[in-house]
Design a protein around this nucleic acid. Sequence first.
DNA 1: GAACTTTACTTGGATGTCAAAGCATCAAAC
DNA 2: GTTTGATGCTTTGACATCCAAGTAAAGTTC
Lengths: 197, 197
Amino acid sequence: MTPHRPLRFDPIEEASRNWHRAGWGDAAAGMTLVTSIMRAHQILLSRVDATLVPFGLTFARFEVLMLLDFSRTGRLPLSKIGERLQVHPASVTNAINRLQRDGFVARLEHPTDRRTTLAAITRSGRRVVRNAAKALNEGAFGDPGLDRDQIDTVVRVLAELRRDAKDFEPSPAADAVAGARDDLAVDDGGAGDGARR
Amino acid sequence: MTPHRPLRFDPIEEASRNWHRAGWGDAAAGMTLVTSIMRAHQILLSRVDATLVPFGLTFARFEVLMLLDFSRTGRLPLSKIGERLQVHPASVTNAINRLQRDGFVARLEHPTDRRTTLAAITRSGRRVVRNAAKALNEGAFGDPGLDRDQIDTVVRVLAELRRDAKDFEPSPAADAVAGARDDLAVDDGGAGDGARR
DNA sequence: GAACTTTACTTGGATGTCAAAGCATCAAAC
DNA sequence: GTTTGATGCTTTGACATCCAAGTAAAGTTC
């Protein structure tokens, strides 16, 4: 993130005062929430990306590799990656292109569905993502600048925001089925470099 | 945002379980915080940008216009805009270029410092940003999908995150001086269209 | 006053986001 | 079996982010 000297006042608090002065008090809380999330995102993304530079990764690509590393077979259809990471298909294509360029992922054809492209993590992809994860765990993830209670509080409230946005079904029963079914989409291994058989 | 059907489970909770299984429990809370903020950012930005489409604005440009609209003289140096919005100088240049292209902002020379470019909001800039603000107040800001207590809680914790990132000085005394001094950088008006004199 | 340092901004490039459109393929309906 | 609808992915383009480098101008130091 751009090195910067602290401002003498909280710019978001100042914006909130301006919102009230403009007569928009009812929406001031929502405006403050939105701009706070925007700034928090920027701070955290900057820290994460800085940590990943030595591994030749960005957070977007790191997430894709983590998902593949955690999957049962080390490979997933691109559509499944987009669904799980909740990004646009074009973003998945972009990330996979770059990971393929760097040798961390290989594209495979689906054995029975010719619409589908499979992304398969390679040996060097596994190596780099595990090393990157360790670096993140020691840095941005291990010490995000808030204590455990604060983290749990924000995570709980944001889970409600995500539920409200229809990210996932609220049923705890649905949770119990989690992860046990999703990468069944990749159930018969094709020959591919780095694919675990 | 890309229309999407809810997943049957919370992908971030699933990621947290994976993190624990990998033996990285100590960092799981931080990882969950980071990915929750990332997703919340995406949800909120998508709502805000969708609201702004009819005004020909994005959130980045909207923020610049709001800052100018709230400033005392309707004009600010680009460096001040970057400082207050906490974005990179190149991002400010980009936003001002687009706002100038659309006639919402004019670039003015600084009367005494030739390094400095002033951005001055135009009449149509004021009109569009106020209409856009109303639309946001009725939509994304007025009903962000959380109740007031939840919003206040998240905002308070994220303020601490921003303070920890040196966004602003923690002193309440500094706050008292807020806003009364910053756009003093633009203290002698130059003739410019839309400039309030 | 000259030399050096800092500041302001722009440009070019890399990155990642999503919308829109298109093509190929598979699924469903008849 | 044919037609229609849905799905998967890619490509293109618009947008915004920041890094790095460069130029011009102001400030500081000697």
